[in-house]
Amino acid sequence: MYTSRHFWRDKVDSTQNHIPYKLLFSLYTFAHTFSWRVWVFLQLQTKVSSFRKLMVSWIKSCGFLRTVLLSSSHAYQRDDQQLFGTHLRYLLTPSLQKEEGQRVGELGWREMERISILPDVCESEQRLYIPGGGVTKALYTDCCTEDISMAVLLIFCSEGDNIPDAFMLINHLNDWLHLLEKPTQGSVQWKVPPSWRLLFGSGIPPQLF
Rank of each mutant, 00 (worst) to 15 (best):
P183D: 11
D79L: 07
L153N: 02
I130T: 07
F209R: 07
L24T: 12
G85T: 01
F200S: 15
S49H: 11
L69Q: 03
Y28Q: 13
P20V: 00
F156E: 05
T145V: 13
F167K: 11
L92I: 03
P206F: 04
M168Q: 09
I115V: 15
L177G: 01
P94M: 00
R89E: 01
R9L: 08
S35N: 12
L107R: 01
G108Y: 03
F30Y: 15
L42Q: 14
S61A: 13
L199A: 11
G160M: 05
D161P: 00
W190E: 04
T67V: 15
Q43P: 12
V48C: 08
G134F: 06
K182D: 02
T67M: 06
Q16K: 11
L180G: 02
V68M: 00
M55G: 02
Y90M: 05
E146P: 11
W8M: 04
M1N: 07
E159D: 13
W39C: 08
M1S: 14
M112A: 14
A31W: 02
C144M: 12
T184D: 09
S124C: 03
R110D: 09
C62P: 04
Y129M: 15
G63S: 06
R127K: 14
L198S: 08
S57K: 09
L173Y: 00
P164S: 04
M112P: 02
S72L: 04
N17R: 11
Q81L: 13
L27F: 12
V68C: 03
P20E: 05
